[in-house]
Computed example of a mutant assay.
Amino acid sequence: MIRVLVCDDQALIRTGFATIIDAQPDLEVAGECADGLAAVADARRLEPDVVVMDVRMPGIDGIEATRRLAGAEVDRPIKVLVVTTFNIDEYVYRALRAGASGFLLKDAPPAHLLHGIRTVAAGAALLAPEVTRQLIGRYATRIRAAGPVPGAVPLTARELEVLRLIATGLSNAEIAATLAISHETVKTYVSRILTKLGLRDRVQAVVYAYRRGLVA
């Protein structure tokens, strides 16, 4: 079972999400909360597999709550799927920078929410289709502006090739087609890359690639 903590300051939305999630045979709601501080406390206490996090909440917002739960400085990071009403680049950028594994809009169909939870729980990254390619381009520009991080990259030539394709926003299927290899082989490469680099998911892999100057 994938255990989910639902965090939203609107009771109706919270209840709606919880109902949709609990109706699935492989998902269960571990808890619900209505503000950022409660989200942090409940997530640390309940240790869910995924936190569904709103952005605008009282106390501390969902971005700060995400940073405290999923940021690079956290010893035991928790996977966060940010779900918001606002399709604003700055929110998406800040959410991913804080450590979120995914981003969805609240007006997405319920199936997208369920897919997002399962995707994030499996260790993959998820961005709403409306923002994926555009976001990577804008986020990459900001990372480049900060300058590359020096140091050797402990990957083989093929793994570097796969990492560069991940950083351009390609899915596993697209990478497989580009390199003329099987989908399963791509999954193996991705898993190996994340393990070698100590990364949580594909979002962190994208950030790593741009920070290391591996993508033009």
Rank of each mutant, 00 (worst) to 15 (best):
R44E: 14
V52W: 07
A38E: 15
D49T: 03
D26S: 03
V83C: 14
A72Y: 03
R44G: 07
E73I: 08
T84I: 10
V52Q: 14
G62L: 04
M57V: 05
G31V: 06
L46S: 01
F17Y: 13
R56S: 12
D61T: 09
A23Y: 03
R76I: 14
A70I: 00
L37Y: 11
L27W: 03
E28D: 05
V29L: 07
V55P: 02
L46R: 10
E73N: 11
E73C: 03
V80S: 04
P48W: 01
A72N: 12
R68G: 00
M53F: 07
R68S: 05
R45C: 12
P77V: 08
I21L: 10
E28Q: 08
G71H: 07
I13H: 09
R56M: 14
V83S: 10
D22M: 14
G71M: 05
D22F: 02
D54Q: 11
P48S: 04
L81D: 03
A65D: 00
R14N: 06
L81N: 09
V51G: 00
F17N: 00
V80R: 08
V83T: 09
D54T: 05
V55N: 08
D42V: 04
E32M: 13
E32C: 14
A38Y: 05
V51T: 04
D61G: 15
R44H: 12
V52D: 13
M57G: 03
D54S: 06
I21K: 02
P25Y: 09
E32S: 13
M57R: 00
V29F: 02
G59R: 06
I60H: 08
I63S: 02
K79E: 13
V29Y: 02
A43F: 01
I13W: 05
I60M: 10
V40E: 06
E64W: 07
L69A: 04
A34G: 15
A30H: 03
I60K: 05
R67S: 09
E32N: 06
R45P: 02
I21F: 00
E32Y: 05
C33W: 06
E47A: 15
G71K: 10
I63F: 02
G62K: 09
D75A: 15
T19L: 14
A34D: 15
V74W: 03
L27C: 01
F17S: 06
I63Q: 01
T19V: 13
V52T: 15
D54F: 07
L69N: 04
I78P: 02
R44T: 12
I78C: 05
V55I: 15
E73K: 15
D42E: 14
G36R: 06
A72S: 13
V52N: 13
M53V: 05
G31F: 10
E47M: 13
D26Q: 01
E32G: 11
R14I: 02
Q24W: 11
R44F: 07
R14A: 11
